[in-house]
């Protein structure tokens, strides 16, 4: 495996990690708000708080890791994406900042403040929408490059059906992934009331998640035929992805094996995410930047890989400790 392929693979895995943990977090915020508005707050609020409180900060670091990593391995992305994403990127920063700090304010300072719950819930929907612009732009067609000038065509972006289909997919997926995780988490906490409600949310968002994914694939056919053709070559991954989707829905519907059901959801998204990513290769940005052309020098790449391995040796055990203490510890989850 070449160094640049290794680099982009590692980053893509981390981005997938972010997609899952952040989806759980974003969706939890939305459900928290929704249950507050619909007067069912007490039912799921405790469960959501108990999971989120120790891990919210870690979620953010996944994102930081990804963008620092991509600029490290592919410094040219800083030039292209940095210039083009000034506005959408800044919107994401502002939303993330509001969300992160107001979550802490609400959890540690002003408990049960409705404004904070509202901000926390709404940013959970808007952040995935604004972050998905990065992937939308990567398909090409929304920016033009003249020498040292990169220009984002904001109007074309805002009127593109393809762009909106990706935004829709992002939001729906967040809600589906989050609801399925929280259903499992509440079943482990023996909180049947919360579990029943979250199971309903999971089933409600299940079909939309697959349908919106299909819309994205179809609209990509007109927006970026080259990528679409490539993706068809990996259709076995997409078919497997749909298979795992059905397994998950089946388990949730029959109210059993919630752990396996959530795992199937993760696999459903992993397969789709990697089918998309693999067929996107070698382009980092259609048609301007490939993985090869954007790659840093070999010395830097090697040192980054070494640091990455050392870093993982440090982080994986620590991360397992968190899971052991807060996700797999029955007494903690049940609030004992």
């Amino acid at each position: 495996m070449s160094l640049e392929l290794l680099g982009i693979t590692v980053l893509w895995i981390f981005l997938f990690g972010y997609v899952i943990v952040a989806s759980i977090d974003f969706g939890a915020g939305f459900f928290s708000m929704y249950s507050d508005i619909s007067g069912r707050k007490d039912m799921i609020h405790t469960i959501i708080q108990r999971y989120l409180s120790p891990v919210w900060e870690i979620t953010n670091v996944f994102l930081v890791f990804f963008f620092v990593g991509i600029v490290g391995f592919f410094p040219k992305t800083a030039f292209y994406y940095g210039t083009a994403l000034l506005i959408p990127g800044s919107i994401s920063i502002i939303l993330l900042a509001i969300r992160g700090s107001y979550y802490a304010f609400g959890t540690y300072g002003m408990k049960n403040n409705r404004i904070l719950t509202f901000l926390y819930g709404m940013t959970g929907v808007f952040i995935p929408a604004s972050l998905s612009t990065v992937l939308i732009i990567s398909e090409g067609g929304f920016i033009s490059v003249k020498g040292k000038h990169v220009k984002l065509h904001l109007l074309e972006l805002l009127t593109s059906p393809f762009a909106w289909s990706v935004v829709l997919l992002a939001i729906v997926s967040v809600l589906f992934i989050s609801a399925s995780f929280l259903t499992w988490y509440s079943s482990k906490a023996n909180d049947y009331k919360a579990g029943a409600l979250l199971r309903k949310y999971t089933l409600a968002w299940s079909l939309p998640s697959v349908l919106s994914a299909l819309v994205v694939v179809l609209s990509m056919k007109t927006h970026n035929p080259e990528h679409f053709e490539n993706m068809i070559q990996y259709s076995w991954m997409l078919i497997l992805s749909i298979l795992f989707f059905f397994i998950a829905v089946f388990f949730f519907y029959r109210k059993k094996h919630y752990g396996a059901a959530f795992l199937s959801v993760v696999l459903q998204y992993a397969l789709a995410f990697f089918a998309y990513g693999t067929s996107h290769y070698p382009y980092l940005l259609y048609p301007y930047l490939t993985v090869q052309a954007g790659f840093t020098n070999e010395t830097m790449a090697k040192s980054l890989v070494i640091v990455f391995i050392l870093g993982l040796l440090l982080l994986v055990p620590s991360f397992l400790l968190v899971l052991k203490l807060f996700v797999f510890d029955k007494n903690y989850i049940q609030g004992k």
Binding site: V55, E57, L315
Partner: peptide, 19 residues
């Protein structure tokens, strides 16, 4: 890029144990 990358690890480490 190397120290920038290292910084995210240090920060990750801190975030986990602070939680």
């Amino acid at each position: 890029a190397l120290p920038l990358f290292m910084e995210t690890f240090a920060f990750f480490f801190e975030a986990i144990f602070l939680g």
